[in-house]
Design a binder for these strands. Structure first.
Lengths: 132, 132
DNA sequence: AGATATATAGATGTCAATATCCATTATGCT
DNA sequence: AGCATAATGGATATTGACATCTATATATCT
């Protein structure tokens, strides 16, 4: 459903949301979220470049959210690390389906849309109790 | 959202649904659905062993649905080739979450549930116009 | 029985996601 | 200035999904 990478990113973001004031270093996030530290760094980089998170090097540095956790959705996080792709044209490339999806892909894409909608309506704030 | 394998399986099943009486050989399904023939065989084997499809060897053999297409859902097909896994316990293994999911995983699993529900309510019959 | 058409089985190859490691750069502290 | 802390970047495994190939078993037809 969602990739391992997205799962890790969400854990990290919920972790940051639960400590909104401090800057948390990567190794601390890794320990709390149980994400492999070296892989987490890759993911944090993506979150920084999509501007959901800011980073600060050096002692007492680390990561923190750029926006209030109430203003970041699960979908924001997923799209930053592992974009959900909508089906915009029928993969069979049939001429009949050039301008509207066939029923099969229409149905699948509708469901993808529902999922995006559900994830966009859940903020990080509402999940803050998730981590110790 | 759904794997390539599930997408292929759905195309094959819709193809069979649109020709409910005849037995279609694998190479014909592959051509119509644009699925790589040798990989399709692997998928058909899974569909046969989950009893959504029956097979017949030899000349004028092939594959056909075991049930009316109105009685097979998209979810049936997906579960046969690439089971959607529900989240039954928090992957962090925290003692606090031993018996109920944390908000993050609760939310994700609810969404998975919605998706399953949507797919279970769509029959192959309703998508028969999908293929030539 | 022989020829042909078809599914089945198993071995193997390819590639992207996942994960690790090491060197480098930036920052704050004493 | 020098040291410790932390992010960043790049090279390199590892793994599982996807795909291909070849050989074999089974059925139909003449």
């Amino acid at each position: 459903m969602i990739s391992q990478t997205a799962e890790y990113a969400l854990r990290a973001m919920v972790c940051l949301a639960s400590r909104e004031t401090e800057a948390l270093p990567g190794h601390a996030i890794a320990q709390i979220t149980q994400v492999p530290a070296s892989y987490l760094h890759k993911i944090m980089k993506q979150l920084v470049s999509s501007e959901l998170v800011s980073s600060q090097r050096g002692p007492s540095g680390g990561f923190r959210l750029t926006r209030p956790s109430s203003d970041i959705s699960v979908l924001d996080v997923i799209m930053a690390v592992d974009p959900i792709k909508r089906i915009s044209h029928c993969p069979l490339n049939l001429p009949e389906h050039a301008h509207s999806l066939c029923p099969l892909h229409r149905r699948i894409d509708d469901t993808i849309g529902q999922t995006c909608e559900a994830f966009s309506q859940t903020s990080l704030q509402s999940m803050v109790e998730s981590l110790p």
